[in-house]
């Protein structure tokens, strides 16, 4: 992962060169930056905009339009809590509220210890297992508020996968 410190200047320059002179690149460019830094750092966007002669505003225009882009680093584990229809009718709002209460964060925020970032997502496509959440790459289905919290506590104590698929 790149940081915004000086020693990564060359790496950023390489990213810029791959996109120089091409059309329709904004989304791929932003994805590449996010992949490299974990988020879109303001100073990187300013530099890239200047180098590639794209108005900074149009970079922000695209970055704020799509849900995927973020302006802050993520926690160690990203919780993707499904708020799709099937999950909703099976009570996912109650699970979301319980997770927020338990972690003390709202949607899009990261816990103070940097362990969890909470995202509410439209649909994970595992509707038969509703309600569902993903922690990192692991999927947990048929949740209750209580079990969701136990799953997350499992990550705190390094017991990943605890309470899987009840």
């Amino acid at each position: 992962m790149l940081s915004t410190k000086q020693d990564d200047e060359q790496a950023l320059q390489n990213i810029i060169e791959t996109f120089r002179g091409k059309k329709g690149i904004t989304i791929s460019l932003l994805s590449k930056i996010q992949e490299s830094y974990g988020y879109l750092p303001q100073e990187v966007l300013s530099k890239v905009a200047k180098e590639l002669d794209i108005p900074e505003a149009s970079l922000y225009g695209v970055a704020t339009f799509y849900a995927m882009f973020r302006f802050k680093p993520l926690g160690k584990y990203t919780i993707k809590l499904c708020r799709g229809t099937a999950c909703h009718v099976q009570g996912s709002l109650l699970i979301a509220q319980e997770v927020m209460r338990h972690l003390g964060i709202s949607e899009g925020e990261t816990t103070d210890d940097g362990l969890f970032t909470l995202e509410l997502v439209a649909c994970l496509g595992c509707c038969s297992l509703a309600p569902v959440m993903m922690v990192g790459e692991d999927v947990y289905g048929r949740l209750t508020p209580d079990r969701a919290v136990k799953v997350l506590d499992g990550y705190r104590t390094n017991k990943r996968g605890e309470g899987n698929n009840g």
Binding site: G24, T26, I27, S28, M68
Partner: peptide, 23 residues
């Protein structure tokens, strides 16, 4: 790859997104 915007399921928005713009 889409970047997370429901409106991009609409064909003209999808085309704008392929072109790298706001969908």
């Amino acid at each position: 790859e889409g970047a997370g915007a429901f409106v991009c399921g609409e064909e003209t928005a999808l085309i704008a997104s392929i072109e790298g713009k706001r969908g």
